[in-house]
Design a protein around this nucleic acid. Structure first.
Lengths: 351, 351
DNA sequence: ATGAAAGCGCTAACAA
DNA sequence: TTGTTAGCGCTTTCAT
């Protein structure tokens, strides 16, 4: 279990450590030297010490992903995509959780050359302090989220406004005219953006809109808020009932389906429900939950690409990429024709 | 964006770099020196270079988690638990995907001192070659999975055999007498273990058992295999229908519920369905899917604890911990009394 | 309590 | 093509 250094390999091969290093790294060296060194390394089970190499080269071949909450399916999907790109580019991925906004700033400040060559950051909230810290960071940082365009920072965004537009357009196409927006806390970035998008879409079409706010983006809170909303409407008479609930994410959408169900409302016949994120939950739910895919995997890929590109070319101008959303229509919003359950089974891709 | 080294801090504070180092690391130093160095470091925004420190100290303060497929909810849950423990112990977590068995062995062999101080490994399959590589690894490795007990390797296991026992006992208690086991590929570790556990539980109770094998542990394959099974049974007359389907994981359980539904069978009245893993899908499904929690989060915690403990005490004997499964009973298997939908809502914990 | 200096393992500039 | 050597930034003896 003793670790073997290049010195021993060199001795074994009967060459200097410099020659050993060159042979191992494909630098100029005679065929014979290469052969001898390779053999010696093989026999000894030599693996170069990554730390020493990093110190010398000034690069760690590690990239970081910092996120508030691993476990959130959206972040997991992003992480999976990151890992793939990063590994292909010859880097390792290290994960950190950032907790609150202050901790995020601390993390970025502590980035001093050493443990990663670059960072992908999914910040909970973007503060001026954070933007400052990122600009002063000694390694490149790519941000997933909404940053001022003039900040000069590589950014990749989801377009949740456009996503809400897609949902509303679809529902109106399906003949829905009274749409309720089921939002999470409005002081969060996604909460704000989705609300604004919904409002814009609804206003431009002149359909009726209601709104309910849940305390958190969870199934339980979504269920509670949706149930309250529906019970109030029912009390006012069936005419005041919305004919669609647009939830701000899939979890709340699932909660809304269950709330409708518990109140004896049929989905989608009496009321349509939609979500956002197109998670596996949306595919599995019955009826399948129509959902806007905000392109989490794609955003992860793009973020990793941006980071790798910047590492290769540190002075290039900052890029700001927006990934287009796509709508996955499922049974929760589609009543036309005989209810085509089979269509909901997009399971082939579920893994 | 220039990175500042300890040399500059020392100069600024008017002391030697040795004193600066001591002051920063809480070694012996006069109060005044400490004060001056602290101030200088603060002003300069000094962050110690992790690479150089690692090289000197021989420790990276990084731990690795290697897994075939991030994205699998069970692995994600494990990873979350790992991250928490690891961060609390002052380490960072780096993630690698391992692909197939050969790649796993390569990864372990490449572990040579350098990028992690220790590794948690979730191998797809355990081969002799892998066991060899782990024993020769220059850093401690903790394995999540089934390893020979005499291998002298820290191990944490799920007890899926006992889990199947719990499920079968519950179903028999509920009056079920014809149980169908819906398995994934039998040549995988979980496939084998769950099958054996099911068989043992069923044999000892003398109830009827059937078996179907899906090509993969997915919703789609689970749906297909369950549907085929049920259609055949229906063709033979209602008496030959199983009154419960025991699926080898939640995904297949969900597939089975949908298959039963599509064939006009009511769950749980006509047929009960159970899963394994107690994922969020089980909670969200309607009816809620009764599922065995194999303790993924707990296993992650234990694995991290074992690794941290071994790092602190390299020569301690190998531990082998088995985490007990627990059964989460939900509506898919519980018909007694008025169907208590509210009971299925274990959402409070869903996050 | 402090400073000078060695050295962790490696790569690269330089000399031969 | 090869060997000698400096040095990446840090911690830690060893003197003082």
């Amino acid at each position: 279990v003793a670790r073997v250094t290049i010195t021993e390999v060199a001795r074994r091969a009967g060459v200097s450590i410099a020659s050993a290093s060159r042979a191992l790294n494909g630098q100029v060296a005679s065929a014979e030297t290469v052969e001898r060194v390779r053999a010696a390394a093989e026999e000894l089970g030599y693996v170069a010490d990554a730390t020493a190499r990093s110190l010398k080269l000034g690069r760690t071949h590690q990239l970081g992903y910092a996120v508030a909450d691993i476990g959130n399916p959206v972040y997991v999907e992003i992480m999976g995509a990151l890992e793939a790109v990063v590994a292909a580019a010859g880097y390792r991925l290290t994960i950190s959780t950032t907790g609150d906004a202050a901790a995020t700033v601390d993390l970025v400040r502590s980035l001093g050359r050493g443990y990663v060559d670059g960072l992908v950051l999914s910040p909970l909230r973007v503060t001026d302090e954070l933007v400052q810290a990122i600009r002063q960071a000694p390694v490149p940082v790519v941000v997933l989220g909404n940053l001022p365009d003039d900040a000069g920072i590589d950014t990749v965004r989801a377009d949740s406004g456009r996503g809400m537009e897609l949902v509303v357009a679809h529902l109106v196409d399906e003949g829905r005219r009274r749409l309720a927006f089921l939002n999470g806390p409005a002081d969060t970035t996604p909460g704000r953006a989705r609300r604004a998008g919904f409002q814009r879409a609804v206003d431009s079409r002149g359909v009726v809109s209601l709104e309910a706010t849940a305390r958190d983006f969870t199934i339980a809170e979504g269920y509670g808020a949706a149930r309250t909303l529906l019970e109030r409407a029912l009390a006012d008479g069936a005419a005041s009932l919305p004919d669609a609930i647009v939830a701000a994410n899939d979890l709340m959408g699932i909660g809304a389906i269950h709330a409708a169900d518990d109140l004896g409302l049929r989905v989608p016949e009496d009321i349509a429900v939609t979500g956002v994120d197109d998670t596996e939950l949306a595919q599995v739910s019955r009826p399948g939950l129509t959902s806007v895919d905000l392109g989490a995997a794609e955003r992860g890929r793009v973020a990793a690409d941006l980071l790798v590109a910047r590492l290769a070319e540190p002075d290039r101008p900052a890029h700001s990429v927006t990934v287009a959303p796509t709508l996955q229509v499922r049974g929760s919003s589609r009543v036309a024709g005989p209810r085509a359950l089979e269509d909901d089974k997009t399971w082939g891709a579920a893994g």
